[in-house]
Structure formats: C-alpha cells, structure tokens
C-alpha cells in the first residue's frame, strides 16, 4: 500500500523529517506516537502533498510515485487525511461541500454521481452512526463547530469517501470519552483487508479501541522505536524522555 524510504522534509530551511522509513501493507493499522514537534503532522502533510516543503526520498503508494502527484489526485486515488486542525470555510455549506467532494471522487473512480436524494439518504445514515447532529450539515463548513464536532466531521467525510489509506492526525485530541468511542467505531467499521490506517495520536487510550498492528515512536524526524500495541502502554508509563535518550 505505502512504502516510504529515506524521507526527508524541511520547511524554511528547517529540517523536520530526517530519513524516515515506513512500510504499510493493505489492511494494516499503524500508530505513530511521539513528542510535540517531532514531525508527525509534517509527515501527514508531506504524504498528502501540502505545498511549501522541500522533500527528498521516495514514497510509493499502490506501487506508484506518490510525491509527484498533485494534492487532489492523491485524494482521488484514495488518500485521506483527517486534519489535526480542520479548516473553517465561511460561505460554503457543509452538506454541499461533502456532496461536491464525494461526486468529484466518484467521477474519477468511474462511478455514477449521486443526486441530492441519494446523497441525502447516504448522509443520513452516516451522521446517525456517528451521532452527529444533522443540523450541522446546513451550516457553513466547520464555522463555529465545537472542537469535537469538527473532528467528527472529519470522520464523517472519511466514511463517505471510503478512502484506501487513512491518516488520522490526532483525531482523538479534544474528544470526550463517548465521542472517542464513536469515532473509534467509525474507524473500525471501515477496517478492511484492502484499507490501511496511519493513526497519529498522543494517547494510548485510543489504541484500546482501535487495535493497531504496529506502534512507531517518532522522535526528531525519524522512527526511534517500533513495536506492537504494548509499546504504547509502555510509553504511557515511562514517557518519551527515555526514548529520546535511546534514539
């Protein structure tokens, strides 16, 4: 699914990723933990194609060179990121945004575009599953949404777009316990042998709900340690300090 080899990225001459390696197979769930500023969001941004980074190294996605594709093509090919800080866009109706996005992606994938009625039916079930108040669909995109509503809106988009590779950037931060469960169920419901996840989080608790196959610790732009679910528990106890010393 995804193979990252010796990936480096800098912004404004500041080197953030320093020789990052990772391989994700179809169906796998990888968690990335690591101290603030270690480069987790940067990794997500570089993979999704955000402008402004000088990037070196190689990233193969479904066997193809990901780094030379425009942002929207990566998304159309099934790469999805739930933003750490979802953007507010005034004037754009949430429902219309989701529909436009879905239909654009469907068109590229050779599927029939959904008309308003089909879309309404789809979105009704999805919002219900995620316990999202339908009213937010008629509001401006993310404008005035609570922190939790914004995060749920990201997960809603994920479930609608049915991506192949999902990056969750601290989607659990700011969620109350119930919301965290709901979001986890959303993720688990999408688990599939052909779909992979890269979950960035600071909290072991999320990984109680979403069982990862691997946990990586990112320190200073590269992976300092890789383990299974237990590694997260260990980190919870000893913190990153020790890890940095080891790395």
């Amino acid at each position: 699914m995804l193979q990252i080899t010796n990936l480096s990225a800098s912004i404004d001459n500041k080197k953030i990723l320093k020789g990052f390696n990772l391989k994700i197979k179809p169906g796998e769930i990888h968690a990335i933990m690591g101290p603030n500023g270690s480069g987790k969001s940067t990794l997500a941004n570089v993979l999704t194609g955000k402008n402004g980074y000088q990037v070196e190294g190689q990233v193969l996605y479904q066997g193809k060179n990901l780094l030379k594709l425009p942002i929207e093509e990566r998304a159309q090919k099934g790469l999805f990121m739930a933003f750490q800080y979802p953007l507010e866009i005034a004037g754009v109706n949430t429902n219309n945004f989701l529909k436009t996005s879905l239909n654009t992606v469907r068109k590229v994938r050779g599927l029939k575009e959904l008309d308003s009625l089909d879309f309404l039916n789809l979105i009704k079930t999805k919002t219900k599953n995620l316990k999202i108040d339908e009213k937010i669909l008629n509001r401006q995109l993310n404008v005035g949404f609570s922190g939790g509503e914004k995060k749920k809106n990201e997960i809603l988009q994920m479930t609608i777009l049915e991506p192949k590779l999902v990056i969750l950037d601290e989607t659990d931060s700011g969620l109350d316990i119930d919301a965290m469960k709901i979001v986890s169920e959303g993720v688990n419901s999408l688990r599939d042998k052909d779909r992979s996840f890269l979950i960035i989080t600071h909290y072991q608790r999320l990984l109680d709900y979403i069982k990862p196959d691997f946990v990586h610790v990112l320190v200073d732009g590269k992976i300092a340690k890789t383990g299974c679910g237990e590694l997260a528990l260990e980190l919870e106890k000893i913190g990153y300090g020790k890890m940095e010393a080891e790395g």
Partner: peptide, 24 residues
C-alpha cells in the same frame, strides 16, 4: 490552508475556488 483542505478532499484548484467563491 483552506485550498489545501479542499484539494485533500479531491477538488482541484479551480473547483475549490469556485466552491468557496460561489458560496460567498
């Protein structure tokens, strides 16, 4: 950042601007 967000949802630059501006 807003355009990046729209691009990440599969919309190209013109579609993203069109969506934002027409909403406005």
């Amino acid at each position: 950042e807003q355009l990046f967000y729209c691009n990440q949802r599969g919309l190209n630059q013109e579609e993203a601007i069109g969506l934002i501006v027409n909403g406005f």
